[in-house]
């Protein structure tokens, strides 16, 4: 019987391990620093997670359809730089739609390569990570981009404004999460995303245009990246070319942490939101207990590994197995 109980604990950890770890983190941080659960700190965490979160929403679609998107970080730098530059040239009301169009063209290109040409998404998006970075530097000539007249524009609204006492980035994150959650959970398109990621061959045999579904997931992802770029540009009103560097891994960590399987076919928008918040709170907690910010790079990596391990463990029903 003792063996049985041990096994049950193993299964529970395999399924709910992330939540358990999160609760332990929260308790630990709160004991270490009273401020951790204060309202202003909580709001601060959500606000600073919003940009990452918006990107994670889009990547959730890509991951559920069974692919990866490692290009979102450098794509976000691109949209930030572009919208800042165009702001002073053609004004904010034209700059924003122009930036969305350009960013979504990049998403469509990736979608075409992965969906229609059926190229490996890891290679395509890793390549695009580098290619888009080059594109951004070419566009900016390597210089930082700044809005000249920071006071005389309504552009700061997205990153710095608030409505009903809630910061706009949080509202935008919540609104996008709600819309995309409906799209994924309630529409025929969402159902097809799950089918393509769960079993692409069976999806084809069921009359689903697999290439089109994959294509659209990347377009959605790039739309979310454009939103994130807008928030980033509006918050800082100026930017380096590398503002989104490394975010692709944090985004992926949040999605996997939320419980989407890297194998495709599972995950939800809600779970991704949870994953984003877990990641945000852990990074914030590390700062509050007095660790240097660069410690979080190590911790984030540990979390990714942990999440991937638990993902596999949940599939085979135990934490460790002699056979793969």
């Amino acid at each position: 019987m003792a063996e049985m109980t041990k096994r049950d604990v193993g299964q529970f950890l395999a399924r709910q391990g992330i939540l358990v770890a999160f609760v332990i983190f929260i308790i630990g941080f709160t004991l270490a620093n009273q401020r951790f659960l204060a309202v202003d700190n909580v709001l601060g965490v959500i606000r600073s997670s919003a940009i990452l979160g918006v990107m994670a929403l889009g990547v959730t679609f890509v991951v559920i359809s069974g692919n990866l998107d490692l290009s979102v970080g450098s794509m976000m730098s691109f949209s930030t730089i572009v919208v800042l530059d165009l702001h002073d040239k053609i004004g904010p009301s034209l700059a924003i739609p122009a930036m969305f169009a350009m960013t979504m063209c990049l998403g469509a290109l990736i979608g075409f390569l992965v969906g229609y040409l059926k190229l490996n998404s890891l290679i395509v998006t890793l390549g695009m990570l580098s290619a888009i970075h080059g594109l951004t530097l070419t566009y900016s000539g390597g210089k930082n981009m700044d809005i000249a007249d920071k006071e005389g524009t309504w552009f700061s609204l997205f990153g710095q404004g608030s409505a009903l006492g809630i910061p706009v980035p949080i509202l935008m994150f919540a609104l996008l999460a709600a819309l995309l959650s409906l799209l994924l959970a309630k529409t025929a398109f969402g159902r097809k995303v799950y089918a393509v990621g769960g079993n692409g061959v069976a999806a084809t045999f069921s009359g689903i245009r697999r290439a089109r579904v994959v294509f659209l997931t990347y377009v959605i992802s790039s739309f979310c990246v454009a939103c994130a770029g807008l928030l980033q540009a509006s918050r800082s009103m100026g930017s380096q070319n590398t503002v989104g560097q490394g975010l692709e891994l944090e985004v992926l960590a949040a999605v996997i942490l939320g419980g989407a399987s890297l194998l495709g076919g599972s995950g939800t928008v809600f779970k991704t939101v949870i994953g984003v918040l877990i990641l945000g709170f852990i990074q914030n907690g590390l700062l509050l207990v007095g660790l240097e910010f660069y410690v979080q790079y190590v911790v984030t990596w540990v979390i990714i590994i942990l999440a991937v391990w638990l993902d596999i463990a949940a599939n085979r029903g135990r934490l460790w197995s002699p056979i793969a």
Binding site: L182, K186, T187, A188, R191, A195, G198, N199, A202, A203
Partner: peptide
């Protein structure tokens, strides 16, 4: 079949586009 998907969703997969209530399935 999509083994990780539930019974109902598997069964209606080829006609999911036609089963509409407004924008939703």
């Amino acid at each position: 079949l999509v083994l990780g998907m539930n019974c109902r969703d598997n069964m209606t997969l080829p006609q999911v586009d036609d089963l509409k209530a407004g924008p939703f399935v």
